[in-house]
Design a protein around this nucleic acid. Structure first.
Lengths: 222, 222
DNA sequence: CGGCCGCTTCTTGCATGCAAGGTTGTATGC
DNA sequence: GCATACAACCTTGCATGCAAGAAGCGGCCG
């Protein structure tokens, strides 16, 4: 019944997950045959997976050597934050447009954000940082998606991947501060719903930094 | 002497060029064997090219049917402009940072932008719209590149590809207006060099629309 | 005349074979 | 002891083979 996923996809998912989770450490030299054997596949699907991952800049293929896991570049965290700010702000700006279709989109978005915030209340109360991180990602992505810009939406997804790669390992404590983030989410939701793009950007900037610091565990001395 | 490019790369370049140039029209159903035969290659490198192009959302692979050229979505032009505004503004904002390394980057950028503007003068005088479009792309990309955000830079490159796909075909006339664009470039260059991110954004918005209209030939009447 | 079933043909998914290129380790000459 | 050349090994790049799945066409039956 359950159609088993194509081999190429399994290979892609498996390798990507190992990279993002750090199970394949940066700098590691991977061999197609090796990975193929581990996954009980032939070289072909693994080769295809490597190609895709190279396109995402997670692997670097060296012609007759193998594939190295590219390390997280020095200011990747700051880069991601910058781009997220830019894209989310652009989304809010577009959503603030007077066009009726955007008003409807704001309506739908408001509902979804509200639901997500409620869900986050639960995760915060349960001190479940991991579940919170996922819901947090969904929250922000929902805003970008709602703006209807497919290009921005796709790119934003790759940013989320990379961010995941950085947050694992440093599971940053301080779950007691999660409720603050939810409150900020509610404020962001209100602003984007009202169509106040300027205030949204302002609130977003401090929120992104707070989230970043918190999830990375730099939330202020020990 | 000249090492011939790998087959996979040739296939990728060839197919991508045909898609972006419109030689493979949207909706066309491509077969690997067919393309492979045309390029005098085996199916393998063509298959790999298809995979990469699917990752770029230029092809859609249908499991055992073939690959269809994805049509340009309805508001892709507006989407591209929105994202370009967002990314270039973010780049200018970062470049405006006080950090010494950014001051040096602004310095280098200023020189490059100046050189490109001069080159554009030549293309404008020669009424060479195509060459101008290329130099225009380089100009804007240089700003993003200078900001040092690798993520933004890579994404920006894919936007340029897609923009190319839209501008061909409508080689929009009115080359007599090109000098105006160069003047705007010089102003943008000055603003980003001075570190005035706000004024840059404002100038950028109108400039992007002007360029867009001009290159797409919607520059008013006829 | 209309609908359905099966066959033929096309497509890709994946495995494997082969060869070229690169790296490493060793042995030899100095 | 050091440098160099050679050989063995390991890697991928690409071609091809084979089979599974999808679509379209023809014929047959109702």
């Amino acid at each position: 019944m359950t159609a088993t996923a194509p081999a190429a996809r399994r290979a892609y998912d498996a390798v990507k997950d190992r990279i993002l989770s750090g199970s394949f450490p940066a700098g590691e030299l991977l061999s197609e045959v090796e990975v193929a054997h581990e996954l009980a596949l032939s070289r072909t699907p693994v080769h295809e997976a490597f190609l895709r991952l190279e396109a995402e800049d997670l692997l670097r293929l060296i012609p007759r050597r193998g594939a190295v896991v590219v390390p997280v570049p020095p200011h990747e965290a700051a880069d991601i934050l910058d781009v997220r700010r830019a894209l989310e702000t652009a989304a809010a700006r577009r959503l603030a447009t007077g066009t009726p279709s955007y008003a409807a989109a704001r309506e739908r978005l408001a509902e979804r954000l509200s639901a997500l915030a409620t869900e986050q209340d639960g995760h915060a109360a349960a001190r479940d940082v991991e579940a919170f991180a996922i819901a947090d990602e969904e929250f922000h992505r929902a805003i970008v998606t709602a703006s209807g810009n497919a290009l921005a939406d796709r790119f934003y997804a790759t940013l989320a991947d990379r961010q995941r790669r950085m947050t694992v390992g440093s599971v940053g404590g301080r779950p007691e501060h999660l409720p603050v983030l939810v409150a900020e989410h509610r404020r962001l939701a209100a602003l984007v719903t009202e169509g106040d793009a300027e205030a949204f950007e302002e609130a977003l900037v401090s929120h992104l930094e707070a989230t970043h610091d918190l999830l990375l565990g730099r939330g202020g001395g020990r």
